[in-house]
Design a protein around this nucleic acid. Structure first.
Lengths: 233, 233
DNA sequence: TAGTGGTCTAGACCACAAA
DNA sequence: TTGTGGTCTAGACCACTAT
């Protein structure tokens, strides 16, 4: 078994709550026995969950599980695929803009591509549990993301791009700030002009470093909270 | 050499720009030779920088360096010690509140401590390059953070707590959202009431899981941007 | 002192990218 | 095909926690 798979198994167990009583994982040795793997595999699997903030290992004491107490909050690292994140909730998507355009100077700069490159431009509203949670305006370089349809844009574009189009997603930069809503966007969020918005800008790159997407999400400041867990060295 | 030390060395080299020409690190083998360490050490050191988003390793191709293009932005993971982050810039701190109080019910809940526990309560303004960048209101459980003085509160409390008091800092939770400023805080940021604020709430825990600090930073929405780099598995 | 996680060695072979 | 990073083995010993 690969350590990535083991990490998924352990994460599933944690989410199922089977370690809630003790508050900690079995020892490394017991995990080795339980899954029939070597220590290498166990440690690397655990490392993944440590990086995600789900496990706090304490030398000499054990590997403590952090139950996720942040309900109704959005993990910064999953904002790439909020459709998936909200799959167990009542989610509606309304597409406001869906078009293929040629990049002008400004867009070309933002997308790090040549002027004139074909770029998908999508804008949508996401309503979760009857609340207007966020609006998203995104751009995809057609050289890499060759074919998008509105049907997929409504759902998980990330999954589609990665699995159907076989795009090699590598890494992403995120920027978080706050600004006053303009009239148009405020109406799309059922808020008032000049109300605050939590803005999350995201640039996505292929594993070879080429930028293939840029998106800007405007979260409803009344309900949206992002969270981020981290261990400190 | 420990892999943590090696990570620091490599990071320093990256920051000094010695890999700017090639855009990538030497191969693992060359790093092994250069520093006289084993592959274990090199890989673990690199892992740390990969986790921090500074290196993108591509199998078969090399370890590419991501130059940090986010000037004037604040890495989410360094918000624990912004004094250190801004040490090369003109930074002024004004303390608004500095007191030792007994936790009431509300504060006890926030600090996950007993009612009546002694808690430091500090509120300050941070002015960077003549701009009112943020205000911070923080609470420290005196059971763990035994002695704080205003002099240290003005500077790097994180360093002081970790190195002078020997507190075993383990991990932290962060929550990011957006709200309208009240009158008092808006004045401390030289903004207007009901202007937006980017809020970063942070809970800090000892490595044994006990909560020792809670803080809330209100960033000036006109100038503050947070960023976060991540690789995607 | 016993048990737990952390660091490290010295290898082997695999998977992927570029030439 | 070659060079690169990724996965893995089978150990050893260290550092810290709890008792």
């Amino acid at each position: 078994m690969r350590y990535g798979e083991l990490a998924d198994l352990i994460k599933t167990d944690i989410d199922r709550g089977i370690y809630i009583k003790t508050g900690k994982l079995p020892t490394e040795e017991k995990l080795m026995e339980k899954y029939g793997v070597t220590r290498y595999c166990v440690r690397h699997a655990v490392d993944i969950l440590v990086g995600a903030g789900r496990i706090i290992p304490i030398q000499g004491s054990g590997m403590f599980v952090r139950e996720n107490t942040h309900h109704n909050c959005i993990d910064i690292d999953v904002t790439r695929d909020l459709y998936e994140e909200f799959k167990n909730r009542e989610t509606t998507t309304k597409i406001v803009i869906f078009q293929l355009t040629a990049a002008d100077l400004q867009l070309a700069e933002k997308m790090e591509c040549k002027v004139g490159t074909s770029v998908y431009h999508i804008k949508l509203q996401r309503i979760v549990d009857d609340e207007y949670l966020y609006i998203e305006e995104s751009y995809y370089n057609k050289d890499f993301v060759t074919e998008i349809t509105p049907e997929f844009a409504e759902k998980s574009l990330y999954n589609y791009i990665k699995n159907e189009l076989g795009v090699n997603v590598g890494f992403s930069d995120k920027m978080i700030y706050c600004e006053k809503l303009n009239k148009e966007n405020s109406e799309l969020l059922m808020l008032n002009k000049d109300d605050p918005a939590l803005v999350l800008e995201s640039s996505s790159f292929l594993s070879n470093g080429q930028k293939f997407a840029f998106s800007k999400k405007y979260f409803n400041y009344k309900i949206a909270k992002l969270f981020h867990l981290s261990s400190i060295k």
